[in-house]
């Protein structure tokens, strides 16, 4: 009996904790539909007259639709680029023999240790020299390749049996064919994991877009969100509407592909 009580107590604590963890999200949604929230008082837990006014204000008095489109577009391009370039490199590292293979792989791994934060000054100067400050390309170009992606996909490709490629070679298939039609289909789960991770990182990234983008028309969600604070200082319903919009796509991805999201995040250790 006391054993049972103990177990139920533990479960209850875990459930209460989980509800507390999710509460900030619930509270942001409630705030976003409570008109005028934050000026004088906190909204009530069950809004009396739920309204979408905050969302209307957000989209009418800022270019938030454009901002959302920017974030989607940039994240999609970066994801496609990173998955393609990483998969190609992973193929070379697992399937082809060439001089300098282990040295090059070590260099790829070494680049993973260099944080973006360390590179902001020279990277900004480089982008300025290339004329890419305040352009979409300025955000996208430095993120074309991902050493983490190469590392992750290489591990996945290493366990695909060689028999399949050998059979394809005998049929006269070249490396590009084997890459596309044999290896890629067999590592789909790893591709999905990395694609989701890549999309999430791009969607949430803040420091580099903050530095390289100046005009409102190019800004991404996190940058615009940080700026809303200056514009809507005490209009918390509008601020929360913006936050909710930035969170929803990640939430949907997480619900649909929970396993891949967790794998990607845990595998990177970088976020």
């Amino acid at each position: 009996m006391p054993r049972n009580v103990k177990r139920h107590t533990l479960t209850a604590v875990l459930v209460i904790g989980a509800v507390a963890m999710v509460f900030p999200f619930v509270w942001s949604v409630i705030t976003s539909v409570s008109s005028g929230a934050g000026l004088t008082s906190s909204p009530s837990l069950i809004p009396e007259n739920p309204t979408l006014d905050a969302y209307r204000t957000l989209f009418s008095s800022t270019n938030f639709a454009r901002v959302v489109a920017n974030s989607v577009g940039i994240a999609v391009i970066v994801t496609v680029a990173q998955v393609s370039t990483s998969a190609l490199a992973a193929y070379a590292f697992t399937r082809l023999r060439f001089p300098g293979r282990s040295v090059m792989f070590a260099v790829y791994l070494a680049t993973m240790m260099i944080p973006m934060q360390v590179l902001i000054v020279p990277l900004f100067v480089e982008m300025r020299a290339l004329g890419l400050v305040d352009t979409y390309a300025g955000v996208i170009v430095p993120s074309i390749a991902s050493a983490f992606g190469v590392f992750l996909l290489r591990q996945a490709m290493a366990v695909v049996p060689r028999d399949f490629d050998e059979a394809a070679t005998l049929d006269g298939a070249g490396h590009l064919r084997i890459f596309r039609s044999v290896v890629l289909p067999l590592i789909k789960p790893a591709l999905a994991t990395f694609a989701i991770f890549s999309f999430m990182s791009s969607w949430n990234s803040f420091l580099w877009p903050l530095i390289i983008l100046r005009s409102d028309e190019f800004k991404t969600l996190p940058v615009a969100l940080a700026q809303l604070q200056g514009q809507f200082t005490t209009q918390w319903d509008v601020m929360m509407a913006g936050s909710v919009i930035s969170i929803i796509p990640m939430l949907l991805i997480y619900i649909v592909a929970q396993k891949q999201v967790v794998q990607g995040v845990a595998g990177s250790g970088l976020k």
């Binding site: 942001s28 949430n204 969100l225 936050s243 930035s246």
Partner: peptide, 14 residues
Amino acid sequence: FLPVVTSWVAVAIL
């Protein structure tokens, strides 16, 4: 795990 998938900026504002 839910907060992990959101952006730091959204978390800060929340």
